[in-house]
């Protein structure tokens, strides 16, 4: 009995997931078509870029600072075990550039900007503002969705590049403070072992995560149903979908990228 319920729940969940995945894919196709040739609203793009970057900068900076600290503490355990202070800069830098920086900053970005975006689009949808746009012969995809996708991709890319730097400085700060390491030890450990490839690897991930967050948050925003309760559900569904996309894409990109 309970087994049946669980199985049918999983079945329903799977069907639901496929439907949403299909919807997101269709939206992605529409966005790509609107980009060739680019048809998008300049003022709307700059408004979103400013808002999204500006709104999330403080929380991302704080997150990055502490993430740097966490990485160094983890590395510090290894240092004490193996007595290998020369590896801290390398280990923390490698982890921050390739994995932890892009992923954690993307998760925070999704919580801050993605969920806000879903709430805004969902409110517009339930109050018929999207139909209002169509009635003005303005296609909501190039006007509303495309600028947001570009803005989120660009701003997450910038935030990750900036956040990585802050994380490294945060890491250096805590390494000097907690592990009594010299700045120069950390610096040479980093620059001797970390190459451009590690940086590019993380930057590509950031851009892909940014567009994934944008697609999921826009999709759940414009396909919302059922008033104010629907808006809350849409936000919840969007952040969950964004988290799943981030982790699965991270896996795929790790396998594909050098």
């Amino acid at each position: 009995m309970l087994g049946d319920v669980t199985i049918s729940a999983i079945g329903r969940g799977t069907l639901f997931a496929w439907r949403e995945l299909g919807g997101i894919t269709i939206l992605a196709g529409q966005v790509l078509r609107a980009l060739l040739p680019p048809r998008l609203d300049g003022p709307e793009l700059f408004r979103n870029l400013y808002r999204m970057g500006n709104r999330s900068l403080p929380i991302i900076a704080l997150t990055a600072f502490f993430v740097g600290g966490i990485m160094v503490i983890q590395a510090g355990v290894l240092v004490k075990q193996l007595n290998a202070a020369g590896l801290v800069g390398w280990g923390a830098g490698y982890a921050i550039f390739r994995e932890v920086g892009p992923m954690l900053i993307a998760l925070m970005f999704s919580g801050r900007v993605g969920s806000n975006n879903t709430a805004e689009l969902a409110t517009m949808t339930v109050t018929e503002q999207l139909d209002g746009l169509r009635a003005l012969a303005i296609d909501p995809i190039p006007y509303l969705v495309v600028p947001r996708v570009i803005a989120m991709t660009v701003s997450l890319l910038c935030l990750v590049v900036l956040g990585n730097l802050i994380a490294l400085y945060g890491g250096a700060f805590f390494a000097m403070f907690l592990l009594d390491l010299e700045f120069s030890t950390l610096y040479y450990s980093l620059v001797d072992n970390i190459g451009w490839l590690d940086f590019v690897h993380g930057a590509i991930k950031a851009a892909v995560f940014g567009s994934a967050i944008a697609m999921t948050s826009c999709y759940f925003g414009i396909s919302v149903r059922g008033g104010a309760v629907g808006v809350g559900k849409a936000v919840n569904a969007a952040v969950v979908a964004a988290a799943i996309s981030i982790v699965t894409l991270d896996f795929l990109l790790t396998a594909v990228l050098p």
């Binding site: 997150t63 925070m108 969920s115 709430a119 104010a228």
Partner: peptide, 29 residues
Amino acid sequence: GSEGVGTATTSAVIGSSFAVLLLDFMISG
């Protein structure tokens, strides 16, 4: 209204995520 619920949801996500990272840092430290 519904906008307030949206704001509350957003701040809950970001507030608890940040608290998790901060606690992680403090406990590890």
